[in-house]
C-alpha cells in the first residue's frame, strides 16, 4: 500500500471538488478499495471519506418510487420493508452477494463501483489494461473461467462482478450524481457501466470528481421477482452466471444477466421473447458473444438458469 492523504468531506460538492484532483478517490465502506490498495492494484494518493455526507436514507420519490442514499448499507437496503415488498429482486440480489459482515459495511454507491475480480487484475505482475492501460491483457489466453463473454473487447475480458446492480438494471434504476461544479444528473443504470472497448481502465461513465448521491428506483412494476445466482459454492462466491428477473402473470417480463459482461447484461429486445422461453431470450441476448474455451459453458448455463426462473414463475 502506498502512502496517501486523507480527508473527511463535509458536503457533497466540496467532496466532488476535492476528488477532481489527480490521484484522488472517494472512500465509503472501503470493502473493495482498501483491499485493492493493500496489494497496490489501487494506488490513490488522496482519499476523501464521504461517510459524513448523510446520504443514508431511503425515501419515497414524488413519482412513487424510492430514492436510496448512496451511503445506505447493503444490509439496510436489502432489509428495507418497501424494498422487500415492491422490489424484492433487489433484496434477493443483495443477500446473494458477499457475506453478512461485508454487507454491513458496503454502501450502495460503493457496490456499483466495485472493480472486477479478474485474477490477472489482482496480480500486479501480470499485464492488465484495466490496471495499467496499454500493458496488455494476460487474461486473454489465460485462465478465464470466471470472465466475460459479451461486451468485452480485445483489450479486456473482465466482468463487472456485482449482484445488486444486476437487479437495479432490471428495475430501470437511475444513478444520481453531483459534479465539482455542483451540477446534478441522473444516469440510467443501463448506461452507467461502460463496455470496455479500448479503455477498460474506465469502469463507468462517471467524470472526474463526480460523486454518486443516490440511486432511484421508479415506481414498482409488480410481477414475481427472482435472482438466480449460480456459483460453485453455496455462499460467498461471485456469480458464474446470475439472472435477475421480474416476470408478469402473462409471461412477459424483464431479465438481466450478471457475471457475463462489463455491465449487468440486459437486452430489451431479448427479454421481449420471454413468452417463447429461455432459449429464445438468451439466443438474442448473447448474439455476438465471444466466449473462451474456459467460459463457453456460461452460454448454456445462462439459458438453463433463466429456464429455472421461468419454471419457478409458473409454479
Amino acid at each position: 500500500m502506498k502512502a496517501f492523504t486523507y480527508e473527511r468531506a463535509k458536503d457533497a460538492r466540496g467532496a466532488a471538488q476535492a476528488a477532481a484532483r489527480p490521484g484522488a478517490k472517494f472512500l465509503a465502506g472501503g470493502t473493495n478499495l482498501l483491499d485493492l490498495m493493500k496489494i497496490e492494484v489501487e494506488t490513490p494518493t488522496h482519499l476523501i471519506d464521504v461517510q459524513d455526507l448523510g446520504f443514508d436514507k431511503i425515501e419515497k420519490t414524488a413519482e412513487g418510487g424510492l430514492r436510496i442514499g448512496a451511503l445506505v448499507t447493503n444490509t439496510d437496503l436489502a432489509a428495507d420493508e418497501r424494498v422487500r415488498r415492491d422490489y424484492s429482486v433487489l433484496t434477493r440480489a443483495i443477500v446473494a452477494g458477499a457475506s453478512g459482515q461485508l454487507r454491513n459495511k458496503a454502501s450502495t454507491a460503493g457496490n456499483l463501483l466495485q472493480r472486477t475480480r479478474c485474477p490477472y487484475f489482482y496480480d500486479t505482475n501480470m499485464a492488465c489494461n484495466k490496471r495499467k492501460p496499454g500493458s496488455g491483457c494476460a487474461a486473454i489466453g489465460g485462465y478465464s473461467r470466471q470472465l466475460g463473454l459479451i461486451g468485452v473487447s480485445d483489450k479486456c475480458i473482465a466482468t463487472f462482478p456485482g449482484d445488486m446492480a444486476v437487479a437495479m438494471r432490471v428495475l430501470d434504476a437511475y444513478v444520481e450524481t453531483i459534479d465539482p461544479a455542483g451540477q446534478r444528473r441522473a444516469i440510467p443504470m443501463a448506461d452507467f457501466h461502460r463496455l470496455w472497448g479500448d479503455h477498460p481502465e474506465q469502469d463507468t461513465v462517471l467524470k472526474s470528481g463526480e460523486l454518486i448521491t443516490a440511486v432511484t428506483l421508479p415506481k414498482p412494476i409488480g410481477g414475481k421477482h427472482f435472482y438466480e445466482k449460480v456459483r460453485d459454492r453455496a455462499s460467498y462466491a461471485y456469480a458464474l452466471v446470475s439472472v435477475a428477473a421480474v416476470i408478469q402473470p402473462d409471461g412477459t417480463g424483464r431479465v438481466a444477466f450478471g457475471g457475463v459482461a462489463p455491465r449487468p447484461w440486459r437486452v430489451e429486445a431479448a427479454e421481449a421473447l420471454l413468452p417463447q422461453g429461455a432459449a429464445a431470450v438468451t439466443a438474442r441476448a448473447f448474439q455476438g458473444a465471444t466466449p473462451t474455451k474456459d467460459n463457453a459453458f456460461k452460454l448454456p448455463l445462462a439459458t438453463r438458469a433463466l429456464a429455472s426462473v421461468i419454471a419457478q414463475s409458473k409454479a
Binding site: 475480480r117 485474477p119 490477472y120 489482482y122 496480480d123 489465460g142 485462465y143 470466471q146 459454492r233 461471485y238
Partner: peptide, 9 residues
C-alpha cells in the same frame, strides 16, 4: 493464478 480465498474456493 487464483491465489486468494476469493477464487480458490
Amino acid at each position: 493464478i487464483n491465489h486468494d480465498l476469493a477464487l480458490y474456493e
